[in-house]
Design a protein around this nucleic acid. Structure first.
Length: 244
DNA sequence: AACGCAAACAACCGCACCAGG
DNA sequence: ACCTGGTGCGGTTGTTTGCGT
């Protein structure tokens, strides 16, 4: 969507920088410069490229629009599904989501989410019953497994319920210590990533296109502990990793 | 035809992180 | 250990377009 360029004076009055929409001429200059010299220094590329822009603006324009392999076509249904599924698992980590969609940028996905998908998903979520997000794959007869349970995400569309560290039924002793170390607001996904026995990461690729439930029979409740049920047994663990 | 409003989206802004000095 | 500059990321803004009245 076109925007008219505008020119802002920098505070000392000596230099002016263009803001707003990029003209075709500016695009041409930027592309020509990058093709010739590469992006060796994003901050200082504007001046040698002959552009009255900030380096940051140049970088953004390049990354979001001019870069080769950027798709300038509408997001497909398949891509939309992937975005929805990944958003439910990753949250607003647009750059990570974009990395799984070749030719799409974080900015594009963010905009698409905010304008097309946010309302729709909010509505669908209201209609969806609260269900279990994670499953402890443990054998109650195996003490080692008890101490170090591994987890698998059941269904991507439900993973957003993993809102707080209190919701995580995994290796709770370790979890507890990690929370102390990283702070309560530490990002869930990074923490899950950091758990060596978190087994769901590798499944992400396969489960995103077809968000099927892996283990539909299990359940859990969140309070000061977590209750699990699988095909073989019921058990609970509290926030300090005590099993019963 | 004119107006108002919402949607769409490019671009900007501020903050956090990281690497090098 | 601290400082500084560069980069990346997510949130927000500003402008155009499209549609309904």
């Amino acid at each position: 969507m076109a925007r008219y360029p505008r020119v802002d004076k920098i505070s000392n009055g000596k230099k002016t920088v263009n803001k707003g929409a990029w003209s075709a001429e500016e695009d041409r200059k930027l592309v020509a410069y990058i093709m010739r010299y590469g992006i060796w220094n994003g901050t200082h590329m504007a001046e040698p490229a002959g552009l009255a822009r900030t380096g940051k603006s140049c970088r953004l324009r390049w990354m979001n629009y001019l870069r080769p392999n950027i798709k300038h076509v509408n997001i497909t249904k398949e891509e939309e599904e992937i975005i929805i599924n990944l958003h439910q698992v990753l949250g607003k980590r647009w750059a990570t989501i974009a990395s799984r969609l070749p030719g799409r940028t974080d900015n594009e996905i963010k905009n698409y989410w905010n304008t097309h998908l946010k309302k729709r998903c909010a509505q669908e979520k209201l209609e969806m019953p609260i269900a279990c997000d994670v499953k402890v794959n443990s054998n109650p007869n195996n003490n080692l497994t008890h101490q170090n349970p591994s987890i698998a995400i059941l269904h991507p569309t439900e993973a957003t319920n993993l809102g707080s560290p209190r919701d995580i039924p995994v290796g709770l002793n370790r979890w507890h210590s990690r929370c102390n170390m990283m702070g309560e607001d530490a990002n869930l996904w990074e923490q899950l990533h950091s758990l060596k026995d978190f087994s769901a990461i590798e499944d992400l690729e396969s489960m995103c296109p077809n968000s099927g439930s892996l283990l539909p029979s299990s359940e859990c409740m969140y309070s000061d502990g977590v209750y699990f049920r699988d095909s073989q047994d019921d058990f609970t663990i509290d926030l300090w990793g005590n099993w019963s």
